[in-house]
Design a protein around this nucleic acid. Structure first.
Length: 503
RNA sequence: GCCCCCAUCGUCUAGUCUGGUCUAGGACACAGGCCUUUCAAGCCUGGUACAUGGGUUCAAAUCCCGUUGGGGGCACCA
């Protein structure tokens, strides 16, 4: 953690991630967080985590914990925030209510805001009427016209911003330039709700100002409501931060990524067996590219920090490609040391109920044998489970058709199985290296292609047509299990041949 | 409905700001091939894109305008 910035460090940039604990952080928001974090780390600036828990109705109790866990898992650290504090705290908005209230009252005193006690039903009616006329639904300003004091501070009410009825409001976006809105289409935004909590607009402006945030980088779904906040900054007489609206991340259907798109929360990606470094790399490249003819796709965190450039963020939204993420994750897996991969794999085997944790010492050699076998075959860590489950649990003897080799009879297959049984039973060293050549020799002796023989054995021993390399698999399985499964296969073939003869 | 943003292969993108070097490059995915005990991995090859109409210019993917398309927003939600 770097020391929280002092006011004197005017040169230092400060950005923030300000999630609302109404759900788990999803991958689209996190992509924007990645941009913020990369920028902060590159500029040696501050990265602030602030919790915007001003919606009491949608509050999810464990969301804060999951948000923190997700960030930590992805290797995104923050310099100030809940738990660790900082010079600008508290960093949880529900602990700052007095500030927002005071700021809202200030605006009433200066004539920039007013109290409104219109009931919800009336507001809905007003909006509906405007909608029916094809106009933008918004508040009609009834309470705005009332004399000061008409709505008592003691009765239930909200505080609204007085938006100029005419003219335009323009702000500068670092990526898009000037964006202009007509004031007559901007609603008299509620700043303070009747429950005493601020709305997003008030809280974010007050906090970004007080916390000296220099760059407000967020999704471009916030563009249409930005003028409301620009007006707020002006009402307070505060300097504007630099606005950077980054494009949204879309689901495969082209719509804003959300709960309906299946696995979207960071937590789900973790559970599915994605590596944090791979996900981070992928996310950094979603809507941003180093350019300059660069064709590299895999970047270390350090490289990304070094090369990230806000100005190179794309303007159009990007569809989240699970295919490319899978490829990248597989790539990272292949780059990993076997020892490291083993450590990553253990929790997944354990979750599947295939092994217990802590891993029993006698189980470790088996796992170590399995790692190189699966390493280049899996795209996610969880893929290893299906690829190796037969090593840990008993298999069903496969249907007899699977035990008969290509272009072979049942009898020939039976002979082959018996020869393999003999071979496996008499091997001095039960290792992949020791069995490969004898097995190849055996195939030749039997007049079979290696593939024919190995196919039969693969089915007999793994119960599958597709498996990791056969000899490594057999070694991992061990002599006892191998012989047992070969015996079962032999019995199945014998039964099949007898049945054929009777018919 | 109104407002705002955006527009290069199916997808992520390079190239657009500083027009010519772009018969548009890379990656993922897909197809074929090689390798091979299956599946992968790896290597090789292939197809697919400047939304559209008008300008400006000797020259436009690149600049301007319209159209179309896509997305987002219009709450006492963030």
């Amino acid at each position: 953690m770097i020391q929280a910035s002092q006011k004197g460090r005017a040169m230092s940039i400060r950005v923030r991630f300000a999630p609302s604990p109404t759900g788990y952080p999803h991958i689209g928001n996190i992509r924007t967080v990645v941009f913020n974090w990369l920028f902060a780390r590159q500029q040696n600036g501050g990265f602030v985590l602030r919790i915007e828990d001003t919606d009491r109705e949608r509050y999810v109790s464990d969301a804060l914990r999951v948000i923190e866990d997700s960030l930590e898992w992805l290797g995104i650290d923050w310099d100030e925030g809940p738990g660790i504090g900082g010079d600008y705290g508290p960093y949880v908005q529900s602990q700052r209510l007095a500030i927002y209230k005071q700021k809202a009252e200030e605006l009433i005193d200066t004539g920039k805001a007013y109290r409104c006690n219109c009931p919800t039903e009336r507001l809905e009616q007003v909006r509906e009427a405007l909608r029916a006329k094809g106009k933008t639904p918004m508040y009609d300003g009834r309470c705005r016209e009332k004399p000061m004091g008409a709505v008592s501070p003691d009765e239930p009410h909200v505080i609204r911003l007085k938006v100029p009825p005419e003219g335009t409001t323009t702000f500068h976006d670092m990526l898009r330039g000037e964006i202009t809105f007509e004031n007559r289409l901007i609603d008299d935004q509620i700043l303070l709700k009747s429950d005493g909590f601020p709305t997003y607009h008030l809280a974010v402006v007050v906090d970004d100002h007080m916390m000296e945030i220099t760059h407000v980088m967020r999704g471009d779904d916030w563009i249409p409501s930005t003028p409301k906040r620009i007006l707020l900054y002006r009402a307070f007489g505060w300097e504007l931060p630099i606005f950077v609206h980054v494009p949204l991340v879309l689901g495969p259907d082209g719509k804003k990524l959300g709960k309906r798109h299946g696995a979207t929360s960071v937590d789900e990606f973790r559970r599915q067996g994605y590596l944090p470094d791979a996900l981070f790399n992928f996310l950094a490249l979603l809507g941003w590219a180093p350019g300059e003819g660069e064709e590299q796709e895999v970047f270390s965190r350090e490289e990304l920090i070094e090369r990230f450039d806000i100005r190179r963020i794309n303007l159009s939204s990007a569809i989240f490609s699970y295919d490319k993420l899978d490829w990248m994750n597989g790539y990272y897996i292949r780059q990993m040391s076997e020892q490291k991969l083993l450590q990553h794999l253990i929790p997944f085997w354990a979750d599947a109920g295939l092994i217990s944790t802590p891993v029993p010492t006698e189980m470790l050699p088996t796992l170590r044998l399995l790692v190189p076998l699966v390493q280049e075959r899996i795209k996610t860590l969880r893929d290893a489970v299906k690829l190796t489950d037969f090593v840990f649990v008993d298999i069903e003897t496969p249907p007899v058709e699977e035990l008969i080799g290509k272009k072979m009879t049942a009898k020939e297959s039976l002979t082959a199985i018996r020869e393999v049984q003999h071979l496996m039973g008499t091997l001095v060293q039960f290792t992949a290296e020791a069995m490969e050549q004898p097995m190849r020799d055996l195939a030749e002796t039997l007049g079979l292609k290696a593939g024919q023989l190995f196919g039969i054995v693969r089915n007999a021993v793994t119960g599958k047509r597709v498996s990791p390399p056969l000899f490594g698999t057999i070694q991992a399985l061990g002599r006892e299990q191998t012989l047992k499964r070969l015996e079962n296969a032999e019995k199945a073939l014998v039964a099949h041949i007898e049945a054929q003869q009777k018919a």
